[in-house]
């Protein structure tokens, strides 16, 4: 025979067991999801790097320079001027290069083009490249972040 009391007890037990199951699941899933998230690596904050001598880079060419853990493209324009930009394409993260025949910065992955001011001028890139400051001191090229 069913007693209303036993029904209440059963509901209560179901509730306790259900809550315990949810708590248990949380206790298992939380550490796993936290484990999957990579820890932040202590990065050395770089504010400027030396990119070699002026004579090392011929006119109308570009080189990739390591700026901390990010690539930066240093361009020696045909006019003799130096410009530096982030070398990471704003479209899908590929590394860009200087295309001599076009006189432009070009991304081989999806044919994105930037002018020598870093502006996205054709193809899929949605934003311009971040610019870096170039200073020449005693024939040495110094690239630094623009504050």
């Amino acid at each position: 025979m069913d007693h209303p009391e036993s029904g209440n007890k059963r509901d209560f037990l179901k509730w306790v067991l259900g809550s315990a199951a949810v708590a248990w699941l949380g206790a298992v899933l939380y550490p796993i999801s936290a484990y999957l998230k990579p820890p932040k690596q202590g990065e050395v904050e770089v504010s400027s790097v030396k990119a070699g001598k002026v004579t090392d880079i011929e006119k109308d060419s570009g080189v990739i320079v390591r700026f901390g853990n990010k690539p930066v493209i240093l361009i020696h324009k045909a006019t003799g001027e130096f410009r530096a930009f982030s070398a990471t394409c704003t479209h899908l993260d590929c590394t860009v290069q200087y295309k001599k025949d076009l006189g432009m910065i070009w991304c081989a992955c999806h044919n994105g083009k930037y002018d020598l001011n870093g502006r996205n001028v054709s193809g899929p890139p949605p934003k311009p490249l971040d610019e870096y400051k170039v200073v020449i001191k005693d024939g040495e090229i110094l690239i630094s972040k623009i504050a």
């Binding site: 590929c94 290069q97 992955c109 044919n111």
Partner: peptide
């Protein structure tokens, strides 16, 4: 990691239609 993406870079053929669309 510090080289430019090479010219003629392409994904495997089965991703090509998505790659081309994005292009």
């Amino acid at each position: 990691a510090f080289a430019s993406a090479p010219e003629g870079i392409r994904p495997e053929w089965y991703f090509m239609f998505m790659f081309q669309t994005l292009k």
